[in-house]
């Protein structure tokens, strides 16, 4: 698309203090080369509407703060070029399936609550080793590949906004928490599958996912939550049929003692704090 001269932002505004339902507001601003949707919102806030509210931080698709519903798709505002949209009318709304706190700010707390409930951390018996490590947990490259893709999640909520099951079922945990639960279930250092299974076997679990695939298509980081959820179902089914054997969490490899520093690698500088 050729770059437009002006861009019209159609923004979903909501002020909780006004007691009015959300309403659309049109703002037209000049387009500048390389402008992202987030850049446009900043221009609007600086020059047209100082009360406009949204979340953003890194501006480079890493922090996951600026997930928004842009031209009908859940996207990161910082990662979305205006020209990429193919139109000079940019509709921006808060991510659906989350309550709106104000303007473009969704209430992500239910997502993070569901995330925490699925225990997204290593669960092992050797707690002392986890807090005061004497070495490293052994892991092969193949074992790493089983969860590496899912560990790229930035918790932006785009998958939750795209999921059709989330649209009608508040009890469903959603793609992000479930994918992150699977990320730890298949981590060779983890031994918590049996513990997480107690939550995954309930209505919060993966069984309400029927593979619309939208979460994977919407994910700005290529995490593919739909794949994680289906692989999790296979693990749970095989476990139910007693065909899945939970491997022992990987052993601790002691720190090497006879390593010598290469001559061309300088010593680390002294700590400043």
């Amino acid at each position: 698309m050729t770059a437009p001269v002006n861009v019209t932002f159609r923004i979903r505004r909501y002020d909780p203090a006004s007691q009015q339902p959300p309403a659309w507001e049109d703002v037209t601003i000049p387009y500048t080369h390389g402008m992202t949707v987030l850049d446009g919102l900043r221009v609007i806030k600086e020059t047209r509407s100082a009360t406009l509210a949204w979340r953003s931080s890194c501006r480079m698709g890493v922090c996951g703060s600026c997930g928004m519903f842009i031209n009908g798709h859940p996207r990161l505002a910082c990662n979305t070029q205006i020209t990429e949209l193919g139109t000079s009318l940019v509709t921006v709304a808060p991510l659906p399936n989350f309550d709106i706190i104000r303007d473009l700010v969704p209430d992500l707390r239910p997502m993070f609550d569901a995330h925490a409930a699925l225990m997204p951390h290593l669960i092992r018996d050797d707690v002392q080793e986890m807090y005061e490590p004497t070495g490293e947990y052994f892991q092969t490259p193949h074992e790493l590949e089983q969860f590496l893709q899912f560990s790229y999640c930035i918790k932006c909520g785009c998958c939750m906004a795209a999921c059709p099951t989330m649209a009608t079922d508040p009890a469903y945990s959603g793609p992000m928490p479930l994918a992150q639960s699977h990320r730890y279930n298949v981590d060779s250092r983890d031994g918590g599958f049996g513990t997480r299974k107690q939550v995954l076997a309930t209505e919060k679990g993966p069984w309400k996912c029927h593979y619309a695939g939208e979460c994977s298509q919407a994910c700005p980081k290529g995490v593919d939550p739909a794949r994680a959820i289906q692989l999790m179902k296979r693990q749970l089914v095989f476990d139910y049929l007693r065909l899945y054997k939970q491997p022992c969490p990987s052993k601790v490899v002691p720190k090497p003692t006879e390593m010598k520093r290469r001559a061309d690698v300088p010593e680390a500088p002294a700590p400043t704090l």
Binding site: Y14, P16, P21, P22, F69, G72, H73, P74, P94, L95, P96, N97, F98, D99, I100, I101, R102, P106, D107, A161, A162, C163, P164, M166, A167, T168, P170, A212, E214, Q217, A218
Partner: peptide, 17 residues
Amino acid sequence: KGHPNRLGVWGWLGGGT
């Protein structure tokens, strides 16, 4: 509590890609 924004049955048809 914020303003409800769940898509409902419409979300079966829209809201994604």
